[in-house]
Amino acid sequence: MPDSPDQAPDHAHSSAATAHRLVKARQLAAYIWARGITAAELRGLPDATLRKLARAAKTNPPSTGETWQVVAGLLDEKDAWAERNPTHPAATRPSLDEKILWIKPPITPF
């Protein structure tokens, strides 16, 4: 509810928006984690790459950085869980070979 009659309601931070953001973040995090992209690497990607990454995950690109922050947090949580449960089938990353499409390894000089 607005603080004053002149202030518009903040729909971007309503409970419905927060729930929608979490659903989208989970979908993005699942796609990104399967490709071996870490939260730190995600935070370093330019906006254009983030938009392409979201589209590849069959998700509309988030309109704010808040969703990407939630995604990064989910990636950290999943990494920690996978480290504690290395033999669990859900701890394997089925699409590691696709990481190079998003995160370019440094070129080593000759």
Rank of each mutant, 00 (worst) to 15 (best):
P89T: 03
D6E: 13
T87E: 08
K58V: 04
T108V: 09
K104M: 05
A72I: 02
R26S: 15
K99V: 00
Q69A: 14
A56W: 06
D47R: 13
I32V: 14
R93I: 03
K99H: 03
G65F: 10
R55Y: 13
K104T: 14
P86H: 00
A29R: 04
D6L: 11
P62H: 10
D76P: 06
R84M: 10
R35M: 01
V70D: 07
K58M: 07
F110M: 00
T87G: 09
Q27P: 00
T38W: 08
S4D: 10
W81F: 07
T18A: 09
H88I: 00
L28E: 05
S14D: 02
A17D: 05
A29N: 07
A56M: 05
L96M: 09
W81H: 07
K52E: 07
R26K: 15
S4G: 12
R21W: 04
L22D: 11
E98P: 01
K58P: 04
S14K: 06
I103H: 10
L50M: 15
L28C: 08
P89Q: 07
A19L: 08
T87C: 02
A30R: 12
T38V: 03
D3P: 03
S14E: 01
G65T: 06
R51V: 12
H11L: 09
T92Q: 08
P2Y: 04
A54L: 02
D47V: 11
A80M: 06
A48K: 11
I37G: 04
T92D: 03
T49P: 03
T92R: 10
P105C: 02
T67C: 14
V71K: 02
L22K: 13
H13D: 03
K24A: 13
K58Y: 11
A25T: 04
A39V: 03
H20V: 01
L28Q: 01
L53D: 01
A80N: 11
A82V: 00
L50K: 14
K52P: 06
L50H: 09
K104C: 10
R93G: 05
R26E: 14
P106D: 01
A91E: 05
A82T: 02
D79L: 01
P89G: 08
E98I: 00
R43G: 15
A80S: 09
T59S: 13
E66Y: 15
K99S: 02
K78G: 04
K78W: 13
W33E: 00
A91C: 07
P86S: 00
I32C: 06
T67I: 08
W33L: 00
K99I: 00
R84G: 13
H88S: 11
T18N: 12
E98G: 00
A17Y: 04
R55I: 06
P46C: 07
E77K: 15
K104A: 10
M1H: 11
L101I: 00
G73Y: 12
H11D: 04
A17W: 05
R21N: 15
R93L: 05
F110C: 01
A54P: 14
A19W: 14
N60Y: 13
T108Q: 08
A40G: 14
P2C: 04
D47G: 12
P2S: 07
P106Y: 09
V23F: 13
R35Q: 13
K99Y: 01
M1E: 02
